[in-house]
């Protein structure tokens, strides 16, 4: 995988939240950054990865990177629109 060096302008710490918490927090946070900027999400809910991928497909935002960091999934999303 290509190293992603994009610096997120905002972080959502959704660790310890359960479905639909991480998706809700992602939807709220994406509105608080500008188009072209990157949002970082940290989540421990096993549904976070597939759900945020589906959310991104539906809302037309771009997932730059997903990685597992211990118990947490770290997702970088670029606001496209």
């Amino acid at each position: 995988m290509v190293e992603v060096s994009v610096k997120p302008v905002k972080t959502v710490d959704a660790r310890g939240m359960y479905c639909p918490g991480p998706v809700m927090e992602t939807a709220k946070a994406i509105k608080q950054i500008n188009v072209g900027e990157v949002l970082e999400i940290l989540a421990t809910d096993p549904a976070a990865k597939p759900d945020i991928e589906a959310w991104a497909r539906r809302t037309g935002n771009e997932i730059l990177n997903i990685e597992q960091q211990g118990d947490a999934t770290r997702i970088l999303i670029k606001r496209v629109k």
Binding site: C19, P20, V23, A27, T59
Partner: peptide, 12 residues
């Protein structure tokens, strides 16, 4: 509550 919020967050 879960379906409503998940759908709303995804633009439904």
């Amino acid at each position: 509550g879960i379906i409503a919020s998940g759908a709303a967050a995804s633009g439904w």
